[in-house]
């Protein structure tokens, strides 16, 4: 089976192209996706390949084109809606929360809304608070939605394809800081499914649970911890809703300790949900409280030094792990 090296953005693009070639009902719509080739060049070349009927540049109106997508999905099209960043989905929140996520349920199953919303999420680099939100925490709480957050090119391609084929609204959380990351992408992506986490690095002393860019921080932390004799296992969630609690809890039952790493604020959110599952389902295995390493509880500053301080860092992960590993060993 062939494997190639692709950048994260190329993997996303390839997924969209393959699905658009397979199904004429799939189309891409958003701001700057066509002539400009995508604000982050994810859709580069797609306008030339598919024409402006299937790679549709829109006026600047997120709530408008999110609603257009919902209306088009209900009559059989399969829209991929690009938000230039997930931050801007805030003005389309109603179309996602009250409409895309609810139309099947509220109509008693009469209407289907197969739609993908995608774009870069969470911190980029010095773009300030309004460009740095980790929006997945808002969306992952909503029944009717699926939310995925790939960390590697292989998963970016596999999850994007799965999202397009899914009959539910699926939100793909990409990352501006991952778009240029390279990785192996095999032709066979059958093991990449929505709702299935993966062990990104095996270990035995502590479980680090992360997704998207935070998975790379967790991996860096695991490398650093190895040098001081701590073996950290990294669970890369890939999917936030549905959440693969089996993979999380199986790992914690083996390591007895866990630290959750994600961008976004510490109040509530995906991390709190994971901690709840662990204490509820693997309580007897725990040797220490589960800690979280998150963005600090403030709006993201622009200043580079302050920004780095706010974001989850390898050193903070190492410190948290050192704390939980010390517990119960004394």
């Amino acid at each position: 089976m062939a494997t190639r090296q692709l950048r994260y953005r190329e993997a996303l693009r390839e997924a969209m192209i393959e699905e658009m070639e397979r199904d004429p009902n799939v189309f891409l719509m958003g701001e700057e996706v066509g002539h400009y080739q995508g604000a982050y060049k994810v859709s580069e070349g797609m306008l030339e390949k598919f024409g402006d009927k299937r790679v549709v540049d829109t006026p600047i109106a997120e709530s408008g084109f999110a609603g257009i997508g919902v209306g088009a999905a209900m009559v059989g099209l399969r829209p991929i809606i690009e938000f230039m960043t997930w931050n801007f989905s805030a003005v389309a929140f109603d179309q996602i929360l009250n409409n895309a996520a609810k139309v099947r349920q509220m109509s008693g199953g009469q209407f289907s809304c197969p739609i993908v919303f995608r774009g870069p999420n969470a911190s980029a680099r010095q773009v300030g608070s309004q460009h740095s939100h980790a929006m997945e925490h808002f969306y992952a709480t909503v029944p009717g939605l699926k939310v995925v957050a790939p960390a590697f090119p292989k998963d970016a391609k596999g999850l994007m394809k799965a999202a397009i084929r899914d009959d539910n609204p699926v939100l793909v959380m990409e990352s501006e800081t991952l778009y240029s990351v390279k990785g192996d992408v095999p032709d066979d992506l059958s093991d990449v499914v929505i709702g299935k986490a993966q062990i990104a690095r095996p270990g035995k002393d502590v479980t680090l649970i992360a997704y998207s860019r935070a998975t790379h921080i967790a991996l860096d932390a695991a490398t650093a911890l190895e040098k001081v004799g701590i073996s950290a296992e990294v669970v890369d969630l890939r999917s936030l809703r549905p959440l693969d609690e089996d993979t999380i809890c199986d790992s914690v039952r083996r390591t007895h300790r866990a630290v959750v790493v994600h961008e976004g604020w510490p109040y509530g959110g995906v991390g709190a949900e994971i901690v709840d599952r662990i204490q509820r389902l693997a309580f007897d295995s725990l040797e220490a409280p589960v800690l979280r390493v998150t963005t600090l509880d403030v709006g993201m500053p622009y200043n580079a030094k302050l920004e780095q301080l706010c974001m989850p860092q390898t050193a903070r992960v190492v410190a948290a792990v050192t704390k939980v590993v010390a517990r119960g060993r004394a």
Partner: peptide
């Protein structure tokens, strides 16, 4: 919200 949806269906 139904107004852009109607336009989307027409699209």
């Amino acid at each position: 919200p139904q107004i852009p949806q109607a336009v989307g269906t027409a699209f």
